[in-house]
Computed example of a mutant assay.
Amino acid sequence: MRLEGKTAVITGGGSGFGAGIARKFASEGARVMVADINIENARKVADEIGGVPQFTDVAFGGSVKDMAEAAIAAFDRIDILVNNAGITHLPEPMEDVSETAFDRVFAVNAKSVYNTALHVVPHMKASRSGTILNVASTAGISPRPRLTWYNASKGWMITATRSMAVELAPAGIRVNALAPVAGETPLLASFMGEDTPEMREKFLSTIPIGRFSTPEDMGNAACYLCSDEAAMVTGSVLKVDGGRCI
């Protein structure tokens, strides 16, 4: 029960890594808000773990403001924020990615962190405590061709994590990031371009441990970074990648 008595808001919590983190947090005693643009998925996960579902489009400040206010109303405070929601563009030459796709990737992967900072950080500062976990990617550390703008958005998140950690440490707020390799999530086919046995074999050949990241892997890593066991850890990027970045 490492998170007993704590409250958590997880964006993109209705599926994939976010759902894995939500399940782990609930099993460790946290009260969890499952925020997702797909409200049906959010409700399913929330019902499963005894959490609170919340429709949230992280790209829009008004929607994130509603999320923060709903969390305060439900829990009285926000101890943990997990910025997990993210998307990618299809693998293709950088000049072929449409402006619409580019703007959406940065709205969801980068501006979302700005939006949650605007509406959650003030509550954490008021209580002089809190933990923020940003879900980045190995793409921000060891980028692959044809995913240039997605790679850049995750590199942005890593730099934002480190800067946030420095600025917020005097307020008692820790900020860390996770960098998973691709996993069994709804985004897997988009990362690979197509989900075929051949593409999976090619992708897995770059991961020394020989498998994808799982929601359970992410939940376990997130639990540590958001627990009091990591009280001296801030500004770190923990790779959950099976050796991909070695």
Score class of each variant (00 low, 15 high):
Leu187Phe: 04
Ala171Met: 11
Ala165Thr: 03
Ala189Glu: 11
Val181Phe: 09
Glu167Lys: 12
Ser205Trp: 08
Met192Asn: 00
Ala177Asn: 06
Pro180Thr: 01
Thr185Gln: 14
Ala189Thr: 02
Pro186His: 07
Glu201Ile: 03
Val181Asp: 12
Ser205Arg: 14
Ala179Cys: 12
Phe203Gln: 12
Met164Val: 02
Ile173Arg: 01
Leu168Val: 08
Phe191Tyr: 15
Arg200Thr: 01
Val175Thr: 13
Val181Tyr: 14
Ala177Cys: 08
Val175Met: 15
Arg200Met: 07
Pro197Phe: 12
Val181Ser: 14
Gly172Cys: 06
Ala171Arg: 08
Phe203Val: 07
Leu168Arg: 03
Ala189Phe: 02
Glu201Asn: 11
Ala182Val: 00
Phe191His: 05
Phe191Asn: 00
Leu168Asn: 04
Val181Met: 10
Glu167Phe: 00
Leu204Val: 06
Lys202Gly: 07
Asp195Gln: 13
Thr196Met: 12
Met192Leu: 15
Ala177Ser: 14
Glu184Arg: 15
Gly172Leu: 03
Pro180Tyr: 04
Ala182Gln: 03
Met199Gly: 06
Glu167Met: 01
Glu167Trp: 06
Ala165Trp: 04
Pro180Gly: 05
Asn176Tyr: 03
Arg174Ala: 10
Lys202Pro: 01
Ser190Ala: 14
Ser190Phe: 05
Phe203Cys: 13
Glu167Asn: 10
Ala182Met: 07
Gly193Arg: 00
Ala171Val: 01
Glu198Gln: 15
Gly183Lys: 01
Ala169Val: 02
Pro170Arg: 14
Gly193Asn: 00
Leu178Asp: 06
Phe203Glu: 04
Gly193Glu: 00
Gly183Glu: 04
Glu167Arg: 11
Leu188Ala: 12
Arg174Cys: 10
Glu201Lys: 15
Pro197Glu: 11
